[in-house]
C-alpha cells in the first residue's frame, strides 16, 4: 500500500486485486465475490444467491458421493 491519495474506486480495486492474499478465507467464496465485482453486480441479494448456490452444490456433492461410494 503506497502513500498516494486514492479514490474510493482505487481502494476497492486494490482490495480485489490483493484479495487472495487475505489469510484464512474460503477460496470459493472469494471466487464468487471476485466474479460478482467483475460484473459490477456486488449486491447483497447477488452475494446471498451466490453463497446459497455454493452451499447447495457442496451438499449435492455429498449426496452424490455417498450414493456412488
Amino acid at each position: 500500500m503506497s502513500d498516494k491519495i486514492k479514490s474510493g474506486k482505487e481502494v476497492i480495486d486494490e482490495f480485489f486485486s490483493e484479495i487472495y492474499n487475505v489469510k484464512n478465507v474460503d477460496e470459493k467464496t472469494i471466487e464468487a465475490l471476485v466474479s460478482l465485482y467483475g460484473k459490477n453486480k456486488l449486491t447483497d441479494t447477488n452475494i446471498q444467491n451466490a453463497l446459497d448456490d455454493l452451499l447447495q452444490k457442496e451438499l449435492d456433492k455429498i449426496e452424490k458421493d455417498e450414493n456412488e461410494n
Partner: peptide
C-alpha cells in the same frame, strides 16, 4: 457457513 462467515469477517 462457518467458513463463509470467517471469510467475510476477515475480508
Amino acid at each position: 457457513l462457518t467458513k463463509q462467515q470467517t471469510t467475510f469477517e476477515n475480508l
